[in-house]
């Protein structure tokens, strides 16, 4: 990951689009029963300037990295600005404190989306369990596939797309580079 120049342009003919990493933390690799790749395939055609100013890539090894070494994992997962975390990863894998630390370390505009995938009757209890993790302003919860799909599309189209505001994207990218440099 390299710092972007302040005056960097994205898009054709020669410029590299912003590479948006989407990090999934899930044992099943899926989101509400759907493969993340298929969700992205549905969404990306609707994103303005996709493949020109922005491309999105899913990375599925987030949970494995956290299980191996939560501190070391941050140097990899910080590079993704959209995290999709299945609630069980936080609650049942004993990684609650590690996730809280990792989320607190993210720069502003990194979007942490916790997927609550359980019967509606259990939602309240799960949200209570997640309480300390969701302190950060970067954290959002979703409880259904349509909401998740809409959230990802909006994020990729509006928040992470240099076409809608390249200054924010450059600032986020350079913040992450500084954070990673500081750790090495």
């Amino acid at each position: 990951m390299e710092k972007y120049a302040e005056d960097r342009e994205f898009g054709p003919p020669d410029k590299k689009p912003h590479n948006e990493g989407i990090c999934l933390f899930s044992d099943s690799k899926s989101c509400y029963g759907d493969d993340l790749e298929s969700i992205l395939n549905e969404i990306t055609p609707k994103i303005s300037g996709y493949e020109e100013t922005i491309v999105a890539d899913p990375h599925g090894e987030g949970l494995d990295l956290m299980r191996d070494d939560p501190v070391e994992a941050e140097t990899t997962i910080l590079k993704s600005s959209l995290w999709l975390v299945h609630h069980e990863c936080i609650i049942e894998d004993g990684l609650k404190d590690d996730f809280r630390r990792a989320i607190n370390a993210t720069p502003p505009r990194t979007h942490v989306c916790i997927l609550i995938d359980a019967p509606e009757s259990e939602h309240e209890e799960i949200e209570e369990d997640l309480d300390e993790v969701t302190d950060s302003q970067n954290v959002f919860t979703v409880k259904s596939k349509p909401v998740l799909r809409n959230s990802i599309r909006q994020y990729l189209d509006m928040s992470a797309n240099p076409k809608r505001g390249k200054e924010e994207v450059i600032e986020w990218n350079n913040n992450v580079c500084d954070l990673i440099d500081a750790r090495s």
């Binding site: 990951m1 590299k16 690799k29 993340l36 790749e37 599925g60």
Partner: peptide, 25 residues
């Protein structure tokens, strides 16, 4: 390859995580 960050570029030449969390893309 040109459009990917280093993390993705490494995967494209075979540095794939040794787990079943790897996306088919």
């Amino acid at each position: 390859f040109k459009q990917r960050e280093l993390q993705g570029q490494k995967k494209m030449v075979g540095d794939l995580p040794n787990s079943d969390a790897q996306f088919s893309v």
